[in-house]
């Protein structure tokens, strides 16, 4: 996994609540057995007309959004299906950071497994950021995971919380399985004292 310590990039705003993972990556693209190449299908039904032409009004299709790597989303982002394909699509498209006032649990966890940093900030702060972005007051943001602070290119600084374990894993690009296997002895000890109904087959 690619580590993330500090990321500087262009921001795109999405002013929609309850964006579910069916929108992020529609079901017709879940049949592939590979992990890569999902970026071209990101937000497919919103991004393209039924005839395959880009829908000009969609947030990611504006000229200003080209090259964005930070998504400023709204409440309950990533709700619905557990499909990790949603994160694979965002990451493959080029996003490294998703910022929202609330983020659905499974999607939130899936982000960390793929080198994408999900950040939860206050709703009011989010709205003000979106408004000043819309007014053209700023374009880019630096996300400093080490110091847990965001800074826009017009100088607004916002501190954020992050779970210390997830932060450590992401900053070092570590694989969870590798960490877990260090606790092999504990797992074996646990298995030795399991109740029959936990594993009787």
């Amino acid at each position: 996994m690619e580590p993330l310590v500090k990321h500087e990039g262009k921001v795109v705003c999405m002013n929609r609540v309850n964006v579910d993972t069916d929108q992020i990556i529609p079901k017709q693209f879940l049949k592939r057995i590979e992990r890569d190449g999902f970026g071209e299908f990101l937000f497919y039904d919103w991004r393209y007309e039924p005839n395959g032409n880009p829908r000009p009004s969609f947030e990611l299709n504006t000229e200003r959004a080209q090259g964005a790597s930070i998504l400023l989303a709204d409440a309950n982002f990533g709700c619905g299906s557990s499909r990790e394909h949603a994160v694979w699509a965002l990451q493959d498209y080029g996003f490294r950071v998703v910022i929202a006032p609330s983020i659905a649990d499974i999607f939130f966890n899936n982000c960390f497994k793929n080198g994408v940093l999900p950040i939860v900030i206050d709703q009011q702060v989010r709205n003000e950021l979106a408004q000043s972005h819309e007014r053209g007051e700023w374009e880019r943001m630096t996300v400093n995971l080490a110091d847990q602070v965001l800074e826009t290119d017009h100088g607004q600084r916002i501190a954020f919380d992050v779970d210390s374990h997830k932060k450590y894993m992401l900053m070092n690009g570590l694989d969870d399985i590798g960490l877990t296997l260090q606790y092999q002895a504990e797992i074996e000890a646990y298995e030795a004292k399991r109740k029959a109904y936990q594993f009787v087959y």
Partner: peptide
């Protein structure tokens, strides 16, 4: 429910 990375983790470690 879990994501695919977690599916792999549970397959490998049962944890």
């Amino acid at each position: 429910g879990i994501g695919t990375s977690e599916v792999e983790h549970v397959l490998a470690t049962q944890c």
